[in-house]
Design a protein around this nucleic acid. Sequence first.
DNA 1: CGGGATCCGTCTTGATACTG
DNA 2: CAGTATCAAGACGGATCCCG
Lengths: 111, 111
Amino acid sequence: MLKKRSNCPLSCWLEIFGDKWTLLIIRDIAFRGKKQYKEFISSREGISTNILADRLRLLVSNGVLIKTRSSSNKLVIHYELTEKGKSLAPILLSIAKWGNDHIPDTMIIGA
Amino acid sequence: MLKKRSNCPLSCWLEIFGDKWTLLIIRDIAFRGKKQYKEFISSREGISTNILADRLRLLVSNGVLIKTRSSSNKLVIHYELTEKGKSLAPILLSIAKWGNDHIPDTMIIGA
DNA sequence: CGGGATCCGTCTTGATACTG
DNA sequence: CAGTATCAAGACGGATCCCG
């Protein structure tokens, strides 16, 4: 399922996270408390439904997210980070710091 | 030149680096001592020439790389990291660590 | 209503061949 | 050596439709 171009850990990581959307989903869950499909859709960047569904499926199949059902409403699906997913946090933070330092008009807070 | 989907530093960073190839070029320069077009081509992942040319152009235009000429042979072009580019190193290292910890059969060394 | 799947036009990617 | 040109294949975006 994860095809490898090489044994470089960076290259392998890019096979999973190397696109413009995947890390934003992780961000929404890890730092913005989002869990539901419609909450990811509502983020400012505007991911489309087919792309979101595809990325969620990939993240679940790679063990980064787990899909559960809300305890309060069984119709609502929740996506949550696994331990593997949570361990991405330092990467996201170091990227965000780089962005703040080197890209004009960026700020951590926002939705 | 850098169009923004939002003011999130992570999202802006992804506009530059969010693909499967760009960070590999940074890796080759930062950790493998590569400088020339043909050296990037020779990496195991096998980037094609049009994509490489495109990414190098983008990285130069974003101030991450600078294009110079070899002092020994004026026909040879060298790509080198700017300070802005060098400051990506901690990000690459934290990604590589994650890959080593969570993706089977990965190793730092290799070409 | 929430969470998708499908279709379609467009934009991007990629492999290969070729060039200044 | 360091790229372009070409052209096919795939990814994306947006709208719409579907299903429980």
